[in-house]
Computed example of a mutant assay.
Amino acid sequence: MSRRLGAAVVAIATLAGCSSNGQPQDELMVSDNPVAATAAHSPAPATTPAGTVRPLAAASAAIVDDRSRTLVVAVDNPPGLRLYQLDALDREPRTVDLATAAESLALAAEGGPLLAATGKTVVRVDLASAEVTPATVDGTAANAAAYRDSTLVAVRDRKSVAVLEGTGTRTITGGLLSADQVYAVGDRAAVLDRLRNAVFELDVAKGTVGEGLRAGQGATNGTVDRFGRILVTDTRGGALLAFSLDPLLMRQRYPVPGGPFAIAFDPRRDLAWVTLTETNEVVGFDVAGEQPEQRYRFPTVGQPNSVAVDPASGRVVVASANGGGVQVIEP
């Protein structure tokens, strides 16, 4: 696959370090009081959602595990998880109760366990038994990712990344205003800072935050593709961004109007599925070439803040954040 550095890269400056008072020195900051980008508010759906829709309360996250054939959807009220049999979605899901709604879901490995970031806890869920094992962190767990034999946790209010290793915990700090998502890419790792609006390298072994690059005008979510890139939605800027970590570079910037927000990657078809909350749509982009190419576009449920994909069948799952249900699309 071509990895040519596009013209967009020359406009991206490497972010500076910290000042003597511990605050990042960032000439590209547009405000002394930055506000993190969030999903654009959706209008009432004007078109019937594609595929089938199952009723469900407001959802905050969704993920598919191919090996166990499980779809997991996090719901807000009451807080919990719904575990669906992916090949029999008409059956009632298993339920896992949580003390606090999960902001994000991730897989520690194929087949699980599931990692649910909820409040001050990362909950590990066995997908076969639905057994829950909590791990407490010092702060608000926003997101988690498996990294080698450990778990990285974005701790938003502490502006840090916790490293859970066996029974111990280390903390990585430095230069962050907020830690919102973490990504493991082979032996490398990165963190998305929504307030500083940048992707930063992490040296997990040394426990340091490395160089960072601006992530558009207001990045919100990201995922890792099979080419070792981090695909990020620039919600404010209306774009899909692609970053490499070896070295840290913005490889692509592709305009995506409509408030791009949630993102999931299909590794068998090289499709990045992105929800557009301004228009209640989900779009599938082929990202194997020099720039993304749109392959699919479907109308969705209202406020489509979550998306997941089944690599085996190519089915796309979109979950509504305002109680519009769970939608399953067969492209």
Rank of each mutant, 00 (worst) to 15 (best):
residue 4 R to W: 09
residue 6 G to N: 07
residue 6 G to V: 10
residue 6 G to F: 06
residue 8 A to V: 15
residue 9 V to E: 12
residue 9 V to L: 14
residue 11 A to L: 12
residue 12 I to H: 04
residue 13 A to K: 14
residue 13 A to W: 10
residue 13 A to C: 14
residue 14 T to D: 13
residue 15 L to F: 08
residue 18 C to P: 03
residue 19 S to T: 15
residue 19 S to Q: 15
residue 22 G to N: 13
residue 24 P to E: 10
residue 24 P to G: 12
residue 25 Q to P: 01
residue 28 L to G: 10
residue 29 M to W: 13
residue 30 V to M: 11
residue 31 S to D: 14
residue 31 S to Y: 12
residue 35 V to T: 06
residue 36 A to T: 09
residue 37 A to K: 02
residue 37 A to E: 03
residue 38 T to K: 04
residue 48 T to D: 06
residue 50 A to W: 08
residue 54 R to G: 08
residue 55 P to H: 08
residue 60 S to P: 05
residue 60 S to G: 15
residue 70 T to D: 09
residue 74 A to C: 10
residue 75 V to Y: 02
residue 78 P to E: 13
residue 78 P to Y: 09
residue 82 R to Y: 10
residue 87 D to T: 15
residue 89 L to E: 09
residue 91 R to A: 14
residue 93 P to F: 09
residue 101 A to R: 08
residue 108 A to E: 03
residue 114 L to E: 02
residue 114 L to H: 04
residue 116 A to K: 03
residue 116 A to Q: 03
residue 117 A to L: 05
residue 128 A to E: 15
residue 130 A to H: 04
residue 132 V to E: 02
residue 132 V to C: 08
residue 133 T to P: 04
residue 143 N to S: 13
residue 145 A to I: 10
residue 147 Y to M: 13
residue 154 A to T: 10
residue 159 K to L: 09
residue 160 S to G: 04
residue 164 L to S: 03
residue 168 G to V: 15
residue 169 T to P: 05
residue 170 R to P: 04
residue 175 G to A: 14
residue 175 G to D: 05
residue 175 G to Q: 07
residue 176 L to H: 07
residue 176 L to W: 00
residue 178 S to Y: 00
residue 178 S to E: 05
residue 180 D to T: 15
residue 184 A to I: 10
residue 191 V to K: 00
residue 191 V to Q: 00
residue 195 L to K: 05
residue 199 V to G: 00
residue 199 V to N: 01
residue 200 F to C: 08
residue 205 A to I: 12
residue 206 K to C: 11
residue 207 G to M: 11
residue 208 T to P: 04
residue 210 G to A: 11
residue 215 A to Y: 01
residue 219 A to H: 00
residue 221 N to Q: 11
residue 228 G to F: 07
residue 230 I to N: 01
residue 230 I to E: 01
residue 235 T to N: 08
residue 237 G to F: 02
residue 239 A to E: 01
residue 240 L to N: 00
residue 242 A to H: 05
residue 243 F to K: 02
residue 247 P to R: 09
residue 247 P to G: 09
residue 248 L to G: 04
residue 250 M to P: 00
residue 250 M to F: 06
residue 255 P to K: 11
residue 262 A to W: 01
residue 263 I to A: 08
residue 266 D to P: 02
residue 273 W to Y: 12
residue 274 V to E: 02
residue 274 V to F: 07
residue 277 T to V: 11
residue 277 T to A: 07
residue 277 T to F: 01
residue 279 T to I: 12
residue 280 N to H: 10
residue 281 E to R: 08
residue 282 V to W: 01
residue 284 G to Y: 00
residue 289 G to K: 13
residue 294 Q to W: 08
residue 294 Q to P: 15
residue 299 P to K: 04
residue 300 T to M: 02
residue 301 V to K: 01
residue 301 V to R: 05
residue 302 G to N: 06
residue 305 N to S: 11
residue 310 D to M: 06
residue 313 S to G: 05
residue 314 G to R: 03
residue 323 G to E: 05
residue 325 G to T: 05
residue 325 G to K: 03
residue 326 V to D: 02
residue 329 I to F: 12
residue 331 P to E: 09
